[in-house]
């Protein structure tokens, strides 16, 4: 059986809220290492990969592999019934028809319980190779969100170029062109505002802004975001969570002329 207790229901609420417009029905794969989710969007352009490690829960118990097939709109309806500060416990039997969610208020004796009916989801699982990326950019997540939103006003696509001088986000559209360039930057007092660029070779790739703006819905999960790029492979956008848990998005590049 599965029994996993999260200190704050808000974490799962934010994760599901961030991905629910990209993917609808997902398997939450539970085993002794934690709760994982991998799903492509309908057009097979983007991939969501979430890992909530066992250490993110206290306690965490999962005796055997259980796939919980859940519709994210349904899950969100139930998660909205939790207060942000509530303690959340997920429970399921070994061959479950439902997943049980219990919300406990830490301040009162209120206890609420919900069951969500599970679905059989036949999902393709993709193997994501370990990649040494040519460029890794760590920056404030709010800054990345702002750049994507700003450039989307002008164009459908953004070119991301990383060189030793910095990282340039540029676009061109019907009304004109736009570009934002960031250089490595260290703020001793506010390290969350740092921009770090680790580069082994220059990279230039083009991506759809619609997807990037969608990924940025995860900005509330982490003050920083990591962008990993190599020429001609999907972009990795990673929001790190506590206890080495993460929410990752992969986006296939636009290629050709």
């Amino acid at each position: 059986m599965l029994e996993a207790r999260l200190e704050q229901a808000n974490l799962l609420k934010k994760v599901v809220d961030a991905i629910k417009d990209l993917v609808q029905d997902c398997n939450f794969d539970c085993n002794d290492s934690g709760v994982a989710l991998q799903a492509m969007d309908n057009s097979h352009v983007a991939l969501v990969s979430m890992m909530l490690k066992a250490e993110s829960f206290s306690p965490f118990r999962c005796d055997r592999n259980i796939a919980l097939g859940i519709n994210l709109t349904s899950l969100m309806k139930v998660l909205r019934c939790a207060q942000n500060e509530d303690i959340l416990t997920l429970k399921a039997e070994d061959a479950p028809d439902v997943v049980n969610l219990v919300f406990e208020s830490s301040e009162s004796d209120r206890l609420s319980e919900y069951d969500i009916k599970l679905m059989d989801i036949d999902q393709e699982h993709l193997g994501i190779p370990e990649t040494e990326y040519a460029a890794t950019i760590t920056m404030p997540s709010a800054e990345f969100q702002r750049i994507c939103r700003d450039l989307m006003a002008l164009s459908e696509s953004v070119a991301i170029e990383a060189t030793k001088d910095g990282v340039k986000f540029s676009c061109s559209g019907d009304i004109g062109n736009g570009a934002v360039t960031l250089r490595s930057h260290t703020n001793v007092e506010k390290p969350d505002l740092n921009v770090e660029i680790a580069l082994s070779e220059p990279v230039a790739l083009t991506f759809s802004l619609k997807y990037l703006v969608n990924f940025c819905k995860a900005s509330g999960l982490s003050s920083t975001v990591k962008l990993c790029l190599s020429n001609e492979v999907p972009l990795l956008v990673e929001y790190g969570l506590a206890s080495n848990s993460y929410l990752r998005f992969y986006l296939a590049p636009k290629i050709g002329d």
Partner: peptide
């Protein structure tokens, strides 16, 4: 203009 590639083309199916 550039063409959108598919994520499944980069990552192998299990």
């Amino acid at each position: 203009s550039k063409n959108q590639t598919s994520i499944a083309g980069f990552f192998k199916k299990h």
